[in-house]
Amino acid sequence: MNDILLYSLIVLGVLGGILAVILYIVAQKFKVEENPLIDEVESNLSGANCGGCGFAGCRAFAEACVKSAADKNSLAGLNCTSSDMTKVAAILGLTVTAEEPKIAVVRCNGTCENAPKKTHYEGADICAFAHTLFAGGSGCPNACLGLGDCVKKCAFDAIHVDPELGIAVVDEDKCVGCGTCTKACPRGIIEIRPKGKNNRRIYVNCVNIEKGAITTKNCKVGCIGCQKCLKECPFEAIEMRGTLAYINPDKCKQCRKCVDVCPRGSIMAVNFPPRKPKEVKEEVNNESKQ
């Protein structure tokens, strides 16, 4: 009995030793020389592999950063919205100015209340497919379909379809503005905009380009292209794209004049303190929708 025990111990021990040596030799022989900086950069990235930077995952982005730093001595064109790029730059011996934080904005307010559903969709939960089948429950061909293609693509769990509103809603705290959802949306509703000073931003909450008369039929809050905001804006921050107003975030000074003149309530001001007691209710409402 003891012999067997001893025997197996010896065999296993020797076997283990030989294999360890082989493993070591192989590891040495096939060692891939890699810049240790890549690992260091990668450890400072979010690791979500969201693809927002345009590279196939965080590792590829880290490689690109190291390469760019070595070749061009800059990180121009490389940005990860979900990580601190100043840290990455510091590792590589560079300095970058931190980019303005961005956030995804769902530019549709076609909630079940604002744009009542005239038809209901049954089938696979894919916006891209439903988009080919029909114009949408409310009849607006630019409205959020609420089937969550953006939700499935988000690596940060930052966008959800609100079951009561029926449209996609961005979670401000979680969103890093990587832009994956903008590509997933078949109707181009989602836009990446600067987060804004104090998290405050003003935008047109609609992408509908149909004529005003048709828009009115489908949705209570759709932009009808009346251009009132365009005339009101003192900074020329608003431009017309067909029958749709668009607020240029770079020019907008957040005066909120456009919000007041919009007859449809299509312009959304987020995270502003209430100004008039009359508006308190609506502001709270808007905030909860964001």
Partner: peptide, 8 residues
């Protein structure tokens, strides 16, 4: 005109 899908 709206076709059967609702698109114009």
């Amino acid at each position: 005109v709206m076709d059967h899908t609702g698109y114009r």
